[in-house]
């Protein structure tokens, strides 16, 4: 069976740290950064990147459209 691996890129400055992507992720890939961006938000990041399957759930729920998703079949 082909394995799928993915990755997401969060636009740190656009992220408002709402956390909706964190709960939408079925693989527990995302977390909220302890750091804040210039607007004071705890932007999302891949705390567990190797678990990402590129399903796009995080980007789908993101109200600020600040997540881009990539996916590769290997």
């Amino acid at each position: 069976m082909a394995k799928v691996i993915g990755a997401v890129v969060v636009n740190n400055e656009e992220c408002k740290g709402c956390g909706l992507c964190v709960v939408a992720c079925p693989q527990d890939v995302l977390g909220q950064n302890k750091q804040v961006n210039s607007r004071g938000y705890h932007y999302s990041f891949m705390k567990n990147p190797e678990a990402c399957i590129g399903c796009s759930n995080c980007a789908t729920v993101c109200p600020d459209t600040c997540i881009t998703v990539y996916r590769v079949k290997i």
Binding site: I5, G6, A7, V9, G54, T65, T68, Y70
Partner: peptide, 17 residues
């Protein structure tokens, strides 16, 4: 596969409209 290999326009599945 490294992250930089995945993050490549060819592998794009979701982006801002």
């Amino acid at each position: 596969m490294e992250l930089k290999d995945i993050i490549n326009p060819n592998n794009l599945v979701y982006e801002k409209p």
